[in-house]
């Protein structure tokens, strides 16, 4: 095989998810009536904002060679905290701040702060005490959801303050601001991962932690920051979730974890660590979102969505394995 064919094959493998996205969109547009509309496409982008933001954090940690299963529960807790503080109905306390816009940074700070704290807790246990990331974050997944249930008492908060709701209503170029926030996050974190020493170090740690350590990279510090970032971003996802649903319920966001997982893996991030980039993850999120939209449009019973999602996760992991084998053959 010549170096050039190898190179082009590799770039196809690296960007496989974008090709899949185009093919899937083309297929749906051709086969499903009413799919090919601007409204549908903006809808896909809008529907993928929460999942997208959550996937960023998950992807960071997986690229660095670890795992964070707690992102879904962290998002739910952040949403519940924002809901309780700034909702006026249900269990909401309806706190008002003046001027009104102060509520935006305040709610953001609460959401991201909660996420960052849980991320710090996870990171400390996993990195400093060298416990298994899978078990630690699985535990967090459970206890954080438990806190959501406990503080809400199983009830919900409704009617989020309009000053915060504004992000879901105001649109620029047909897309609500909340979706622009997700896109902005992808841009910022893509640059962070690809163009800064911190991102480069995370990729190297994911590839060969020992080598990175020997080269004088502060592995412990970087990994803990990755966990804190993942938590804070999950908090942001929760904030968006609260805005979208104008409140919070105790079972808000259940099942998002596996969608995020599927999006990350479909997006080309290897579960082995060290491989993958964030633009691909966004494509993965859009891909999942377009499939969801197709299911809705075809009028399939909602009960089947879960079956399809399950198979998607399976397909994603299979794809990952297949790609790894192909790469080994190319090498």
């Amino acid at each position: 095989m010549t170096p050039r064919t190898r190179k082009s094959l590799e770039s196809v493998l690296d960007n496989l998810v974008w090709f899949m996205l185009i093919v899937v969109l083309a297929l749906f547009s051709a086969l499903i009536p009413n799919y090919f509309q601007i409204g549908i496409f903006t809808n896909i982008i809008e529907a993928s904002s929460v999942l997208g933001v959550m996937s960023i954090g998950l992807a960071l940690v997986i690229i660095a060679g670890h795992m964070d299963l707690s992102v879904e529960s962290v998002a739910a807790l952040a949403a519940m905290a924002v809901g309780i503080l700034f909702c006026s109905a249900g269990i909401g306390m309806g706190i008002k701040l003046s001027p009104q816009w102060l509520m935006i940074p305040a709610s953001l700070l609460v959401a991201c702060g909660i996420g960052a704290l849980i991320g710090l807790f996870n990171g400390f246990l996993v990195v400093k005490l060298k416990m298994s990331a899978f078990i630690i974050t699985l535990a967090s997944f459970i206890w954080v959801r438990g806190i959501v249930l406990a503080v809400s008492g199983g009830r919900s908060a409704q009617d989020l303050d309009p000053a915060i709701r504004w992000f879901a209503i105001e649109r620029v170029a047909g897309i609500p601001l909340s979706a622009w926030i997700a896109i902005a996050c992808f841009v910022v974190f893509s640059v962070l991962m690809a163009k800064t020493p911190f991102g480069r170090h995370l990729v190297m740690i994911g590839g060969n932690e020992t080598a990175a350590y020997r080269a004088g990279i502060r592995v412990t510090r970087n990994l803990i920051i990755a966990f804190v970032l993942a938590g804070a971003i999950a908090g942001l996802a929760g904030w968006l979730l609260a805005i979208r649903t104008s409140g919070a319920t105790a079972n808000l966001g259940v099942g998002l974890l596996f969608n995020a997982f599927a999006a990350v893996v479909i997006g080309g991030v290897s579960l082995k660590g060290g491989v993958g980039a964030l633009p691909g993850v966004y494509a993965g999120v859009l891909l999942l979102s377009s499939i969801n939209t197709a299911i809705n449009l075809m009028g399939l019973p909602a009960n089947y969505t879960q079956v399809i999602h399950g198979f998607l996760v399976l397909a994603a992991v299979l794809l990952d394995t297949f790609k790894q084998r192909l790469r080994q053959r190319l090498a």
Binding site: G207, N208, A211, A212, R214, A215, V275
Partner: peptide
């Protein structure tokens, strides 16, 4: 230090 097992990150 150059170690016996190489200290390279093969993924970059």
């Amino acid at each position: 230090t150059v170690y016996q097992d190489l200290s390279l990150c093969t993924n970059v």
